[in-house]
């Protein structure tokens, strides 16, 4: 499969602040990626560089094999739905659709209007007057109907209720099935989208700390609970990503698949093992207490 994005040692600094710190990864064609991390971790800066809205400080950045800056061969293939996308003050929802039709080469106007109806968006209302949820819906409609070979959603479901979110997942999967493309979902709330993702990129404090297939991550972390003396001994040589003390008890989360031997040992020590969800793993990895870089477990 060919790479849609190739990033090598990409860095962005603002004065003394490093927003994106020596990040390297590749994005393959046709997959759904999750770009995860807390607010302020550097996700938005990263996406702004990929879409040539911000200038990198150093490093390499190739999108569809080329530099994206002022490059229509690259930019015309991208649809980036920004969380803070600004619209002209007097723009109506219908104006967004008319302009999108001219800007995105693969735009499907019929699909756009059908999505507008399903998301119950008022065509004639000014974008400025829309609620947060409606604004998110406009972004979703544009993102899906653009059929751009690289579609990026930044915090796509802010303010959306459960029904609208579910509609988003349905419509996205439906259109993705018919028109496969590369999709990046960037969010700090991984919970619901985790099932949609094929690959996970986790950013923390400007660094990429996880770059793996979502399926390989599920069940990768395990929580060990029991008497602190026994747990501590058991943890030796394992990558501990979280630790909680409760009286004489310790509950610790370790990364890495446990072997049969590990499990037997835990059982003999009377320790309780429980699997950790992808969501919980991400929370532990980004709680600010550990330093990690992608690839260190492989």
């Amino acid at each position: 499969m060919s790479n849609v994005i190739e990033i090598n040692g990409l860095t962005k600094t603002y004065g003394k602040v490093t927003a994106v710190d020596n990040v390297s990864f590749k994005i393959q064609e046709g997959k759904i990626y999750g770009l995860l991390g807390r607010n302020g971790a550097g996700k938005t800066t990263l996406m702004h560089m990929i879409t040539a809205q911000l200038f990198k400080t150093s490093g390499q950045l190739k999108v569809f094999g080329e530099e994206p800056y002022e490059n229509n061969r690259v930019l015309s293939q991208i649809c980036f739905i920004k969380e803070g996308q600004r619209y002209p003050d007097n723009f109506r929802v219908s104006d967004v659709l008319k302009v999108s039709q001219l800007i995105f080469p693969n735009w499907d106007q019929e699909l756009a209007y059908s999505l507008i109806t399903q998301f119950q968006l008022p065509l004639k209302r000014r974008v400025k007057k829309l609620s947060r949820g409606m604004l998110s819906s406009v972004g979703i409609v544009v993102g899906i109907a653009s059929r751009a070979p690289l579609t990026i959603f930044d915090e796509p479901y802010l303010g959306l209720d459960a029904v609208a979110r579910s509609l988003f997942y349905d419509k996205l999967l439906e259109d993705y099935a018919e028109h496969p493309r590369t999709i990046i979902l960037s969010t700090h709330l991984i919970d619901e989208v985790s099932q949609l993702l094929e690959h996970v990129l986790l950013v923390d404090k400007g660094k990429l700390i996880l770059n793996e297939e979502a399926e390989d991550l599920r069940g990768r972390a395990t929580t060990v609970a029991g008497e602190s003396s026994k747990v501590e001994g058991y943890l030796a040589g394992k990558e501990v990503i979280h630790r909680e003390q409760f009286g004489g008890l310790v509950s610790a989360t370790v990364m890495g698949q446990l072997t049969v031997k590990d499990r037997d040992q835990a059982s003999k020590l009377g320790l309780e093992l429980s699997p950790v969800s992808l969501q919980q793993m991400v929370v532990h990895l980004t709680n600010g207490k550990i330093d990690r870089e992608a690839g260190s477990t492989r």
Binding site: T51, A52, Q53, E70, N71, N72, L75, S76, I78, C79, F80, K82, Q85, R86, Y87, P88, D89, F91, V99, S100, I103
Partner: peptide, 16 residues
């Protein structure tokens, strides 16, 4: 201020 952020946000070249 009205149109530049919108248009650049829709990944259009500055030249266009």
């Amino acid at each position: 201020a009205q149109t530049f952020p919108f248009i650049i946000g829709f990944s259009v070249r500055r030249r266009d």
